[in-house]
Design a binder for these strands. Sequence first.
RNA 1: GCCGGGUUAGCUCAGUCGGUAGAGCGCUUCUCUUGUAAAGAAGUGGUCGUCGGUUCGAUUCCGACACCCGGCUCCA
Length: 643
Amino acid sequence: MTIQLIFPDGSVHEHESGVSGFEVAAGIGARLAKAAVAVRLDGELLDLSRPLLHGGAFEVVTETTDEGRHVIRHSAAHVMAQAVLDLFDGATFAIGPAITDGFYYDFNIGRPFDPDDLEQVERRMAEIVEADQPFEREACSIEEALALFVDQPYKTEIIQAVDDSEGAGGESVSVYRNEDFVDLCRGPHLPSTGRLKAVKLLRSAGAYWRGDETRDQLQRIYGTAWESKQALDDYLNRLEEAERRDHRRLGNELDLFSFPPELGSGLAVWHPKGGLLRTIIEDYSRRTHLSHGYEIVATPHVAKAQLWETSGHLDFYAEGMYPGMMLDEQTEYRMKPMNCPFHILIFKSNGRSYRELPLRLFELGTVYRYERSGVVHGLLRARGFTQDDSHIFAMESQLGDELQSLLDFTLMVLRDFGFDEFEADISTRPEKYVGQDDAWDKAEAALQQALEIAGLPFEIAEGEGAFYGPKIDVHVRDAIGRRWQLSTLQVDFGQPENFDLLYASAENTRERPVMIHRALMGSIERFVGILVEHYAGAFPVWLSPVQATIVPVADRHIGYGREVAAAMGEIGLRVEVDEADDTVGEKIRRAITHKTPSVLVVGDSDVEGGTVGLRLRGEEHERRGVGITAVLDELKQMAAAPR
RNA sequence: GCCGGGUUAGCUCAGUCGGUAGAGCGCUUCUCUUGUAAAGAAGUGGUCGUCGGUUCGAUUCCGACACCCGGCUCCA
C-alpha cells in the first residue's frame, strides 16, 4: 500500500505506507535529513522515526525554525528531568514545556535548588547527551500509565485529567523513554539525546503547581537550548544586550531617576535630567491632546472612600488600594487608584446636552496602587505613577466613529515615539458582566472594525474583557523585538450606571452616555522605562535631556563656548558646556557615554573663524570648522519634535 | 503574597573560618592648557540596610523587618 505525501512546493510523492519521516527527508536530500528534527503530516508534528500511515500535506521540520527549536527544547527539558531524577533521590517532576527561547521543568526535591545543584544537573545532562540515548515513543493505556507513574503524584494527576496538552488524550497516552527514564509526553522528540548540541541552564525559581498559589510550591529550572553553539551564544548575547538596556541600570547611569528605599517600594524620584525627559513627554502629550479635541482637567490624589464605593472599586479592587485614612471624625479617605470617578464628577457638575458629546476629559493623573510586594519592577511596575488618562463620554451612536479616531490618534502617538510595529488584542465579554447584550455586541464589533480599518493585526481574547466593557490593548515591538503592552482603549457600560450619568438628547429625553477609558502611553513612568530600553538610553534628539555638549579645548575657549551655548539656547536647544578640568578626549568620552546626540568642540581656530567641530551621534567622523549658523540650522532641524 | 538569592564608599564590586574593612570608577585639590572615546599626582569618602539576640567582642552567626534581584501568582 502506498501513501501520497504533498510537499510544501505542491509536488506529490508516493511512498510505502509505514515509511518514516526520516526516510522521506533522506530521500529529498542528505543535508535536509541531517537538519531534520521532526516532520509535520497534515498539521500534526511527528517524530522522525514515526511510521507514516496515511498521506497528506508533508513538511520536514528543521532545527533552524521556531518549530524545530521547540522540539530541541522539549527534548532538552526531558534530559534535564532525567538528570534531576538521577541525581536527587525521591525527586518528583511535574511539567516541562518548551517556551520562547528556552524551556523549563518543575520539580519537587523537598528543598530548593542552589547554584551548585544546577551545575551538577548540567554536567549530568552533558553525560546523557554524550551517551546519545534514543528517544522512544510508546502508546499506553491510562491504566498502564498510572502504573508507570505510581510514585509520581503530579504525573498521576495529569494522567487522571487526561490533559490533552501532555499526553495523547482520550483512551491512551504517549510516553517517551530513553534508557531507564520515562516521561509522559505528546512529543515529538529528537531521535536521540546526542542531537542536543547547545544547552545551558539559566536559573531556578519557585513556581506553583498548576500555577495555583494555594497548591504546592515547586522548584522550576529554566534553561535554553539551540541548534548550535553559535545560536546559543547569539542568544546569550541578546540577553546581555537586554541587560545593557535595562532601564534601571541606564536610569542610574544617565542620572534620570532613582528609588530611594526611604520612600518605600515602587516609588520613584525624578532627577533633573529624568524630570526634563518626563516634562518633554508630558508636554507632547498635553499638546497633542489639546489639538485632538480633548479638554485638560486636574483632580486631587485622595477622595472619600464613599466615592470608591459608588464606583465599585472598593468592592472589586480593595486589596490593590492603599488603606484608608480617617479624617474629620468619621470620614474615610483613600488614595486614588484611578482617575475615572473624578472625571465622572466633572461630567456631572453640569447638566449635559448631546451637543457637548463626545466630551473628552484628559488628565496626566497620578494614581497609587498597592502592588503586591513581589511584583514591583523599576518604572515598569510601580506603586505610584501618572497615567495619560482620558475619559470620553459619548452617545452610543458615536461609539464606532469615536473608537476609530481614537485608534488613529493612539497609533500617531506611538509612531511619534519611534514605535512602528503594532499588535492588538480585543478582550470580549466575560462570564459576569454589566450592560445590555446588544450594547456589548455593538461595542465589540466597533472595536474590531476600528482595528480592521487601521490595518492592525489583532487577536480576540474571548472572555478577557472587564466586567464593565470590552477593550483593545495595543502592543508594540521594541528595537530588539520585545513586545510591550502600551495603550488600552476600554468601553465602559458600568460607571455611567453607577453614577447615574445622563445627558439631554435632541428629543429632550434623558439618555445614558457610554464611557471610554483610555491611556495611550499607559503610565508615564512605565513609558519612560520602555523608551529607555527601546533606545538603549540614546534618545532621539527631541527627547534628549541634553541635546548638545560643548567641549572647550582649553580654558581660554570657555568664553566662546558659552557664547555658542547661548546662541543655541536662544533657538530652544538644550545645551551644556563641559568646563571641567579634563582633556578633550575625556570630555568627549563623557558626552558620548551620557548618550548626548551632539558634541561641539571649540578651540583656537573656531574662536577665530566663528565655527565649531561637530561630532554627531551615529556619524563616523567629526566635521571640523563648521560655521555657527550652519550648526544652528542643522541641530534645530534635528531637534524638532514630531508635532 | 509565595519560593530562592542579595544589601559593604556616590557607583560597580572584593573581603573578614567573629577581633570594626579594600580596589576600580567618581568626587576634591594641585600640576598640565589640552583638537575628537580615559593626562599625572595627592587626597576625600563606610554606624558593612535597620532593629533585636548569641558572644568578652558581631559587618561576619541567629531572628524579625525594610529594600533590591530572579521567578510564581496578581495587574481595575
